[in-house]
């Protein structure tokens, strides 16, 4: 399964804006919506990617493997859910910390093309001694 890397960068940029808006407004609903977008992205059906496809018709110069970005969407979903728990239970440090972590990763992807979520795979595997 392959994807257009430009759609991934576009999705990361929209995610950055949405997560920044979540932090400024403190809206749990907006974070819930972003969590749903992450969940759809995990299954390769990111709504932001579909918007990009609707706007840009030119073919990409090169395609990328879909699996790394899908994994990263899963990491994003985990952060968003933690943040959601923080906002709903009003544990402010959890709400801000988890949402900021997702914003950090989304911005690195949008601005530098660096997939922090993908890098988490090996770190997580290294930290799981039982599974090795």
């Amino acid at each position: 399964m392959h994807v257009d890397p430009r759609a991934l960068r576009f999705s990361a940029a929209v995610t950055t804006v949405v997560l920044a808006a979540v932090l400024v407004t403190g809206s749990a609903w907006l974070l819930g919506a972003q969590a749903a977008v992450f969940a759809l992205g995990l299954f390769g059906a990111s709504p932001y990617g579909m918007i990009f496809k609707g706007i840009v018709k030119s073919p990409p110069a090169e395609l990328e493997e879909a699996s790394p970005s899908r994994f990263a969407q899963g990491v994003g979903l985990f952060c968003a859910l933690l943040g959601l728990v923080g906002y709903v239970t009003q544990i402010t440090p959890l709400a801000l910390g988890a949402t900021a972590a997702a914003l950090f990763a989304a911005f690195l992807n949008a601005a530098f093309g660096f997939c922090l979520g993908c890098e988490m795979f090996l770190i997580i595997r290294r930290l799981l001694p039982a599974a090795s």
Binding site: L23, V24, T25, L96, F104, A111
Partner: peptide
């Protein structure tokens, strides 16, 4: 919202430094 905005700005600043270093 002021706290949230501060978190956004700090996060983006740190991410920029990390991105340039990477």
């Amino acid at each position: 919202s002021v706290t949230g905005l501060a978190v956004v700005l700090v996060t983006l600043a740190v991410a920029t430094l990390v991105g340039v270093a990477v």
